[in-house]
Design a protein around this nucleic acid. Structure first.
Lengths: 248, 248
DNA sequence: ACAAAAGTGTTATCCTTACACCCATGT
DNA sequence: ACATGGGTGTAAGGATAACACTTTTGT
C-alpha cells in the first residue's frame, strides 16, 4: 500500500514537523525511532498530487499524533543539495530496500523538505510510529538523541524561529493544559527564551494584559502558599495576540 | 537551449524573488512584463539537479539584475494545489507552446514555489528580462500592476515578513546609497512600517546607536537648511544589527 | 524678512528592573 | 516557629512620545 501511494505523491518534496509539547515543566519534541538504526527522525510525510502543502502537513501530523486541531505553521524549506548526506541515504535505502524496493528507489532521490512547527497537548496526543520507524516518543529538547539527515538543523531552525515570533504565537494556549499556574507559564517562556525572568515582573506583565481568568487555588500539598490557577479568556486572548504578547 | 535545460532542473519546484529597491523615497519591486499578456510576474527561476536551493535563488537574482552580492533570504514556500490558477496556466502555456512545446509541457505541471526576498541597489542593478518576458522594470510598491498566479500574495507575504524581522535586517545598508540623509532613512522605515514616525525622535534614536559616520552636508539648492549626509560604520553596524536595530 | 526643512532640547509619561515585603501552607 | 514558594508594592532608571525652540538656506 505504501508502494502504491508513491504514485500519488509529488516526488522530491517532503514535509518535516517539529512538534513541541510541554510536560512537567520541560519542553519536548515528538521523535520517531528508526528501525534498524540507532538514529531518530522528525515525523514527516509527503504531499499528494492534488493536495495543498499545508493540508499535507496537517495530515502528517494527525497521522502521527491522532490530533486534528493543532497549531501548525510553516517556517523554512531546506534545499541544500546534499542535505540528507550521501552515505546516510545509501545505508537507509539499503535497509528499506529489503522491505520494499519501489519505496527505497523513490526515497533515494534528492528531496527538498519544508519544515513545519506545531504545538501539541502532550496529554491528548497519542504518538504513532510510521512504517519506517519502530516507535514514537516525546523527547526533552535538551536531551536529543542522534538524528538522521539534517533533522537537528531543522529543529534548531524551528526553535530559533519560534523565539523570534514568540510574541505572536499562542504558546500558552497551545502548550499548557486548560488550567495552569503563572509559574508554569513563566517556565515555558524561560525555556523558549533560554533565560531567566523575574518572577514578580512576569506576573504583573502577564496579568496586565487582561487575558486571563483567575480560577481556584491549586493545593499541591507542598509546604507553601497555594498558587492560583488561570485559564485564557478566549476572546481577549485572541485580540491581544494579534498585537503581540510578552517578551521580545 | 531552454528546452535542453529542462532536463537539468528539478521538476515541480520554482523560486520567486521579491527584489526590493528604494529610489526617490519610494519603495520599489522588480517585476517582469509577460509577453503576450498584460500581466506581470516576479523574477524567478528553477533549481538545477545538483544545486542548493539558496544557490539557485542567487543565480536567478544575478541573472535578472546583474548583481552578485546582494542581501537575499528565504521567507516562505507556497504550495496550494491550485496556486497558479487552472485557467491562467492553460492560457499561458498556450502562448508558450507556440514558441516551445517542451517547455510549455514542463511548465504546465504543478509547481511549488519558494519565495525569497532581496534588497538591491536600484542604481547598480541592470534589470534583464527572461525568455518569457519582454521587459524588466522597477515598479512602485503601491502601484502594482496585475500580477500572474499568486504573485501578489507572495509580495504581500514578503512585505509582512520584512516588517516583522525589520530590526534584524540590513535595510538601511542594503537599500540606501552609500551616502544618505536621516530623512531618507526615516522615509524608508516609514514606508516599510506603514506609519509616520516622529522626526526628532527618529534622529536621536538612530544616532544613539552609534553606527553612523557623519559626513559633509548635502546642498540641494532648496530654500532650507542643508542636511548632513551619513554612511554606515561597517563594523559597528554589523555588531548592532545582531542585537536588533530600530523599531518594533 | 520669510518659509521650509534640519538639528537639538525639554518634559511628562510609560515601561523595565531590581528588590522588598507580607501571605499562605505543611512540617 | 519556620522554611518555602506565591502575591503584591515600591522606587530608580531608561525609553518613548509629543512638541517647542533654534539654525540654516534660498527666495
Amino acid at each position: 500500500m505504501i508502494q502504491k501511494e508513491c504514485k500519488y505523491w509529488i516526488p522530491g518534496h517532503s514535509i518535516d514537523c517539529v512538534v513541541l509539547g510541554f510536560e512537567n515543566n520541560i519542553l519536548k519534541v515528538l521523535l520517531l525511532k528508526m528501525r534498524h538504526s540507532e538514529k531518530w527522525s522528525l515525523p514527516g510525510g509527503f504531499i499528494k498530487k492534488k493536495e495543498d502543502l499545508d493540508a499535507a502537513a496537517l495530515r502528517a501530523l494527525s497521522d502521527r499524533t491522532g490530533l486534528k486541531s493543532i497549531y501548525l505553521s510553516q517556517f523554512h524549506t531546506f534545499g541544500a543539495y546534499e542535505r540528507r548526506g550521501k552515505s546516510e541515504v545509501d545505508r537507509l535505502m539499503h535497509e528499506i530496500g529489503q522491505l520494499n524496493k519501489t519505496v527505497a528507489q523513490w526515497l533515494s532521490n534528492r528531496f527538498l523538505t519544508t519544515g513545519y512547527f506545531a504545538f501539541a497537548d502532550v496529554q491528548k496526543a497519542r504518538p504513532v510510529p510510521d512504517f519506517i520507524s519502530e516507535k514514537a516518543e516525546w523527547v526533552a529538547i535538551d536531551e536529543l538523541p542522534t538524528l538522521i539527515f539534517d533533522h537537528l538543523e531543522i529543529i534548531n531552525k524551528a526553535l530559533q524561529h519560534i523565539k523570534l515570533k514568540l510574541n505572536y504565537l499562542p504558546i500558552g494556549d497551545a502548550l499548557l493544559p486548560p488550567k495552569f499556574t503563572m509559574a508554569m507559564l513563566q517556565k515555558l517562556y524561560e525555556t523558549i527564551l533560554g533565560r531567566a525572568l523575574d518572577r514578580a515582573n512576569f506576573q504583573k506583565k502577564m496579568l496586565k494584559l487582561g487575558i486571563f481568568d483567575r480560577l481556584e487555588k491549586l493545593k499541591t500539598g507542598a509546604a507553601n502558599k497555594a498558587p492560583y490557577l488561570y485559564s485564557f479568556h478566549r476572546k481577549k486572548y485572541e485580540r491581544v495576540l494579534k498585537e503581540g504578547i510578552g517578551y521580545l
